[in-house]
């Protein structure tokens, strides 16, 4: 069975690709959101899951991608393709500029710095003239949900392919070593700074591209929606739920939780977010290695899997 496992991915991707021709507009629109947020989760997985740096600021890269694309298209009248590239450049530049100082910080220092960045980014954008200050920007209207759906799917496949490469590469082994023990990683010859910055940069690239696609699809953006900090909540929880540091976990987590939250969101605003919070708490306590590990562990030891996880680190 293992011999054919690599086939599962292209088959799943192909199945997802034909969805727009068999379903309704609502499903396709839901699909675009789900695929984009899965891309964000996969991007978070690189820095949070592999390197173990809990970034609560990846929404900034998404927002910069959004704004880069919007500025290029609405203000400079560039094409969508150039806009995407411009947005990606902004996101990557931010990761390099901001990443080099803050990735020297560890654990809580890093977490708080990213939290702070995410909290002020919309305020900063609201002061920028070319970004439309706090009013926002309107992009040229383009109707074509199927196109956006396929673009989002391509992006997710690219992100997942990248993560699959990372998981098998020397680079990925270095990131995992950093996650497990950074001091030990360093004395074993790993250039930890370069590795971490590279991880954040790749994460920023995919997040920014997701933002760019979303901007053109939604056609109207403002600081509050582009730099929505609750996006960070979703990236973290989807990765955590699916399996941080795995290839398919974040995608699985994102697709499942998007569906659940879609149902919950129709009940009342905030219910979906509350649910996310509860899932994070439960996941950290009961299944810290995510859904994929849970399936395996549950098969091996049944309910004891949860008991063991809860008992492992208690005082």
């Amino acid at each position: 069975m293992n011999r054919y496992r690599w086939l599962a991915l292209p088959i799943a991707a192909a199945a997802l690709a034909v969805v727009p021709w068999f379903t309704s507009d609502t499903i396709v629109q839901y699909g675009i959101n789900a695929l984009l947020v899965a891309t964000l989760a996969q991007a978070w997985n690189i820095i949070g899951g592999f390197s173990g740096y809990p970034s609560f600021g990846n929404s900034v890269f998404y927002g910069l991608g959004t704004y880069g694309t919007a500025i290029a298209m609405a203000q400079l009248h560039w094409s969508f393709g150039s806009g995407l590239v411009f947005g990606a450049v902004l996101g990557v530049a931010c990761a390099l500029l901001f990443g080099i100082p803050i990735l020297r910080l560890r654990g809580p220092y890093f977490a708080i710095a990213t939290l702070g960045l995410a909290a002020v980014m919309s305020a900063i954008t609201a002061t920028v003239e070319i970004a439309g200050k706090n009013i926002g920007l309107i992009l040229p209207l383009f109707r074509g949900d199927t196109l956006f759906y396929e673009l989002s799917l391509i992006l997710l496949v690219a992100a997942t392919g990248t993560v699959a490469w990372i998981a098998r590469s020397r680079f990925g082994a270095g990131l995992v070593a950093i996650r497990e023990d950074e001091d030990a990683a360093q004395v074993m010859g790993i250039n930890t700074t370069t590795y971490k910055v590279a991880a954040l940069t790749v994460a920023a690239l995919f997040s920014a591209l997701a933002g760019g696609i979303h901007a053109y699809w939604i056609t109207f953006i403002d600081p509050a929606s582009a730099f929505d900090p609750s996006l960070n909540v979703r990236m973290v929880i989807m990765t955590l739920f699916g399996g941080p540091g795995t290839v398919l976990g974040p995608v699985l987590g994102a697709l499942i939780l998007s569906a659940v939250s879609e149902v919950l969101a129709s009940q009342a605003t905030g219910v979906a977010s509350l649910f996310y919070g509860i899932v994070i708490v439960a996941a950290v306590l009961l299944m810290p290695k995510g859904l994929l590990d849970l399936v395996q562990g549950f098969r091996d030891s049944g309910w004891r899997y949860f008991v063991d996880n809860v008992r492992r680190y208690r005082i």
Binding site: P54, V236, Y276, I280, L285
Partner: peptide, 9 residues
Amino acid sequence: LLLTFGLDV
């Protein structure tokens, strides 16, 4: 960090 982040949410 993740657990307290979840509690925050």
